[in-house]
Design a protein around this nucleic acid. Structure first.
Lengths: 240, 240
DNA sequence: CGTTGAGTTGACCATCGTCAACAGGAGTGG
DNA sequence: CCACTCCTGTTGACGATGGTCAACTCAACG
């Protein structure tokens, strides 16, 4: 695993090359052989986004679907009163548009410099119709997302602030580890407001709780992230 | 739509007959033609459950998958300290085992007399491998579930007790309406504890909030359910 | 060097959880 | 038939967790 995740690195507009793509085996593309990959590549268009750019908005006609190859994206829903619930963070390897529905079910904004492979939904859908093993892969991704969503329901419904933060940190660490290998330092390119809107808290409670965990020597707060000083203890908090 | 939902009615052990099944078009079976339906029927085994029986437990080897044809099932996860988060209520037409993973991701218990079609996961998986349109249907069900889960994240993370109850009532009403047509009376066969564990509240808060909504003439509390006295107002609460 | 935005910390308060008492219905047994 | 228990649900009193409002620091940026 030579892949590294650097959320601060700007994206290069390099020509797409699916065969050499670092994320291929992690993404839905991993289901395809070399010939199929070539066919899919001809449908793909690389897009890069600066931080805080909108990929799409909830309710908009879903013209494109995406595979993330670099960066991080916040996926969120807004309540009429303006409050926001982040339903997930998309990392490299993740697929946006699993439902292939007519409208997007949430909004998506880049958090850091981000690169995606964009496909026309119609073309991608037609491609999938001819590749049952790709559909199976999409289904696996969808059920994995569903499982993560159900885990997050437990976090939102049955954990206090400290448990929420611990579960968030350990969950993010594990996802990053699956991409780039293990580390005790967890990059947090998203804002405190993003974390709060993911965990059903306020920015102040996130800040206070992280400070409290730092005071207890569980974590060390570093620029754009935290270091786990006592990983076992944080894991225990995340489980309990 | 002649289907009626009666959650108190005991289940008859009638021989399965997929062609005449009321739930066929609502369930994943709706993707199949008559010949395929016959093949699937030969894999199916009808099971009935009394209230409060366990279908399967989180973490158990997933030997079976299910289509619900009658009744209601609570799907839940337990946290080590014994607290419970209900991640969904399965109604007729719903499919359990979408992930077709080795282990169940949550536990399932019947709430009322319940009937399901049970399939061996291995046999069902092999059947799906030969029917891409059935896989597509399963994928649609999975992404629909994912969408419901994301809606529930908003409810859990960003709504107060009254908003949670309103969203729960309207969401359940809409699901029942899709099966059996519209009604202003919403059957609530699950206990207050179930509702609390679904909404991230306590039983007392559920009871108090329903009482308060009744005092405001929004709803009328009836045995095993509520009647919407002011549906528009409750819908507004559910949205806002 | 002033402005802006993110983050932290403190004081106070409201919502919801906890603990407790009570009501009503179902089931059981004398 | 009545007494008893058990279970679910309701209601009240109180308290804790986390939200609100506000002040402050600090880094980035013009």
């Amino acid at each position: 695993m030579t892949v590294t995740l650097d959320f601060s690195k700007p994206c290069t507009h390099g020509r797409k090359n699916c065969l050499e793509c670092d994320m291929r085996l992690l993404s839905v593309c991993g289901a395809l052989d070399q010939t199929e990959l070539g066919a899919l590549e001809s449908l793909a268009q690389t897009s890069v986004f600066e931080p805080k750019q909108t990929l799409f908005v909830e309710g908009d006609p879903a013209e494109s679907v995406f595979t993330v190859t670099q960066g991080m994206i916040r996926l969120y829903k807004l309540v009429p009163d303006g409050r926001r619930q982040i339903v997930g963070f998309a990392l490299p390897g993740d697929f946006l548009g699993l439902a292939m529905a007519n409208k997007y079910g949430f909004s998506a904004e880049s958090i850091v410099p981000t690169r995606v492979c964009r496909f026309s939904r119609a073309a991608f859908s037609a491609f999938v119709d001819q590749k049952p093993h790709l559909l199976r892969r999409l289904h696996e991704f969808a059920t994995h997302e569903l499982s993560l969503a159900q885990d997050q329901m437990v976090v939102l419904g049955r954990r206090n602030a400290e448990g929420k933060l611990a579960a968030f940190l350990i969950g993010l660490r594990n996802r990053i580890a699956a991409i780039a290998g293990h580390s005790v330092t967890i990059a947090l390119p998203m804002s405190r407001q993003d974390i709060a809107d993911f965990l059903g808290l306020t920015i102040e409670t996130v800040s206070r709780t992280l400070s409290s965990m730092a005071k207890d020597k569980l974590i060390l707060i570093v620029p754009d992230g935290v270091r786990l000083l006592n990983p076992k203890a944080v894991e225990a908090l995340a489980e309990a």
